[in-house]
C-alpha cells in the first residue's frame, strides 16, 4: 500500500525558558493508504503534539515529516494550508463547526478554500451529508443539532476535498455512548470504502476498531500492534 505520511525521528521540544519539555522524543512512523490507525496513550504522553504534527498544524523541532513523499519542513504557510485543505480531513473532539453556518455550508467551507465552483460544491456537500446520514438536516445550524449529529457534519466536512487521510482527535470524547457507537460505525464504513483513518484517543473501545494500534508514552512509541483485516 502507498505511503501517505511518514515521520522520521520527530522531536518536539517546548522551550519554557528554564525548563525544556520534550513532548516527542524521536517518533518514527508511517501511515499507509487504507489503514485505520489508532494512536493511544495517557494524557501528557505527547498524543496531541503528534496529532498536530501529523495534521501539519505544527512543525517538529527535529526530524522530518513527509506528506506523500514531500518534505514539509521548509514549506511556507500557503503550501501547508493547501495541504491541510486537500490532503487532510480533521475531526475534532469538540466538533469545531462554525456556529454561524448551516450544516451544508460547514461542509462546503473546505471546498470554498479549494476553489471548487459553487454548484459542484453544493452537490458534493449534499452527497456527503447524505453519506453521514444527515440528508434531512442540511440547513440546520450546529446549535440545532445534537452532539452526534454535529460530529457527523464534521466528518462530512473532513471528507469534502477527498483527503488522503482523516485525522480524528478524540472524536467520541464528547459523545454519549450511543452517538459514539454510531460514529465508530461511520468510521468503519469509511474504512471499508477505502479511506485512511488516523484516530488519536484514549478511548479503549476504539482500539479494537483499528488495523494498527500505536501506543505512545512519554513522547515515544511504546508499542505497535498490527491487527488482522
Amino acid at each position: 500500500m502507498k505511503e501517505i505520511v511518514r515521520l522520521e525521528n520527530v522531536w518536539k521540544i517546548y522551550d519554557m525558558g528554564e525548563v525544556k519539555i520534550e513532548a516527542l522524543r524521536g517518533i518514527t512512523l508511517e501511515i499507509r493508504e487504507g489503514e485505520y490507525v489508532i494512536i493511544v496513550g495517557p494524557s501528557g504522553s505527547g498524543k496531541s503534539t503528534l496529532l498536530h504534527i501529523l495534521g501539519l498544524l505544527d512543525k517538529p523541532t527535529k526530524g522530518l515529516v513527509l506528506m506523500e513523499g514531500q518534505d514539509t519542513s521548509k514549506m511556507k504557510d500557503k503550501k501547508l494550508a493547501h495541504l491541510r485543505n486537500r490532503k487532510i480531513g480533521f475531526v475534532f473532539q469538540s466538533y469545531n463547526l462554525l456556529p454561524r453556518l448551516s450544516a451544508l455550508e460547514n461542509v462546503e467551507l473546505p471546498m470554498i478554500y479549494a476553489g471548487v465552483p459553487p454548484r459542484k460544491r453544493r452537490k458534493r456537500a449534499l452527497e456527503l451529508l447524505e453519506l453521514v446520514g444527515l440528508g434531512n438536516r442540511i440547513h440546520h445550524r450546529p446549535n440545532q443539532l445534537s452532539g452526534g449529529q454535529q460530529q457527523r457534519v464534521a466528518v462530512a466536512r473532513a471528507l469534502a476535498n477527498d483527503p488522503v487521510f482523516i485525522l480524528a482527535d478524540e472524536p467520541t470524547g464528547n459523545l454519549d455512548t450511543k452517538s459514539g457507537e454510531e460514529l465508530l460505525k461511520l468510521f468503519r464504513k469509511l474504512h471499508e470504502m477505502g479511506k485512511t483513518l488516523v484516530v488519536v484517543t484514549h478511548n479503549l473501545e476504539i482500539v479494537s476498531e483499528g488495523t494498527r494500534v500505536i501506543r505512545i508514552k512519554d513522547g515515544m512509541i511504546e508499542s505497535v500492534e498490527r491487527r488482522g483485516a
Binding site: G55, A81, N85
Partner: peptide, 16 residues
C-alpha cells in the same frame, strides 16, 4: 480566535 483556528485547520491560509 477559535473560529480562525478551525478555518486554518481545514485549509484557510493566513492570507485568506
Amino acid at each position: 480566535t477559535r473560529e480562525i483556528g478551525i478555518k486554518m485547520a481545514i485549509g484557510a491560509s493566513r492570507t485568506r
